[in-house]
Simulated assay, not measured.
Amino acid sequence: MSDEHEPRPFADDDSIRRVGEGMLACTLPKAEWTHEAHIATCAWLILERPDIVPERDLPHLIRRYNESVGGVNSDSEGYHETITQLYIAAVRSALTRSAGRGLADRINALLREPEGRRDWPLRFYSPERLFSTEARLGFVEPDLQRPHSAVEKGGS
């Protein structure tokens, strides 16, 4: 399992806020909705938008954004519940380890950690299970190993 992509860091706090606000407003260009943007938006919501509960609200927000840029949310593409919930828990856990630092510094550090990598979920899920219709439409438990308890779904 190897993620050959080097993370693309954010220049500053405002660039993260721009991505998060653009996703919420459905004005972010589709090409900018990268893996890094997903992670940064999740972290920004946790840190600066207490009115939004990612575990509850991100599914709808991501589906809405996907549709706004011409995407489809179906059994085989678009929004993915298991990946989303897994990363929300991972981002929450990582943010507890970087308290006291600036927004961009915290998110750029997370992107360099295992939990920030695109292939991180494959440590816990076989590709068949992770990319199944069941996992896309609802949260499924891992079939290889459980994530550290701090990053399990719901943080429990």
Results as ranks from 00 to 15, higher is better:
Glu134Gly: 08
Ala94Gly: 07
Gln85Val: 13
Ala89Trp: 09
Phe139Met: 11
Tyr125Ala: 09
Gly116Phe: 06
His38Ser: 00
Arg123Tyr: 10
Leu47Asn: 09
Phe131Gly: 12
Glu36Pro: 12
Phe124Trp: 01
Pro54Met: 05
Pro121Lys: 13
Asp119Val: 13
Ala43Cys: 11
Pro121Phe: 13
Glu141Val: 04
Arg106Tyr: 04
Glu141Asn: 10
Asp51Phe: 12
Val69Thr: 12
Asp119Ala: 11
Thr84Gln: 04
Gly138Val: 00
Lys30Trp: 10
Glu77Leu: 06
Arg123Gly: 10
Val53Met: 06
Tyr79Trp: 10
Trp120Val: 07
Ile52Glu: 05
Leu45Phe: 12
Leu130Gln: 03
Trp120Met: 10
Thr84Asn: 15
Phe131Glu: 06
Ala104Cys: 02
Arg49Tyr: 03
Gln85Phe: 13
Ala99Ile: 08
Gln85His: 15
Arg92Phe: 11
Pro114Ala: 15
His60Pro: 02
Thr133Trp: 02
Pro54Phe: 06
Phe131Leu: 14
Ile107Asp: 09
Asp57Glu: 00
Arg118Asp: 05
Glu48Ser: 07
Thr82Gly: 09
Tyr65Val: 02
Ile46His: 13
Tyr65Ser: 00
Ile88Val: 15
Ala89Lys: 11
Asp57Asn: 08
Ile83Val: 15
Pro142Arg: 11
Val91Trp: 13
Asn73Leu: 03
Glu128Ala: 15
Gly71Val: 08
Leu58Gln: 08
Tyr87Glu: 05
Cys42Gly: 07
Arg123His: 04
Ile88Gln: 13
Ile46Arg: 07
Ala43Gly: 14
Ala31Tyr: 08
His60Tyr: 14
Tyr125Gly: 08
Ser132Pro: 13
Asn108Ser: 07
Val53Gln: 15
Thr27Phe: 02
Ile107Trp: 02
Val91Gln: 01
Gly102Glu: 15
Ser98Pro: 01
Asp119Pro: 05
His35Asn: 07
Gly138Cys: 01
Val72Met: 11
Ile107Met: 08
Glu81Phe: 05
Leu103His: 04
Ala31Gln: 15
Asp105Cys: 01
Ile39Asp: 11
Leu28Val: 05
Glu48Phe: 00
Glu115Ser: 14
Ala94Asn: 02
Glu134Leu: 15
Leu110Met: 14
Asp75Gly: 15
Gly71Ala: 03
Ile88Trp: 13
Glu134Asn: 09
Thr82Tyr: 07
Trp44Thr: 01
Glu141Ile: 04
Gly71Arg: 01
Ile52Gln: 03
Phe124Gly: 02
Ala90Pro: 04
Tyr87Lys: 07
Leu61Lys: 06
Leu137Trp: 04
Leu122Arg: 05
Thr41Ile: 06
Arg64His: 06
Ser126Leu: 08
Pro29Asp: 02
Ile46Ala: 11
Arg136Thr: 10
Ser126Phe: 03
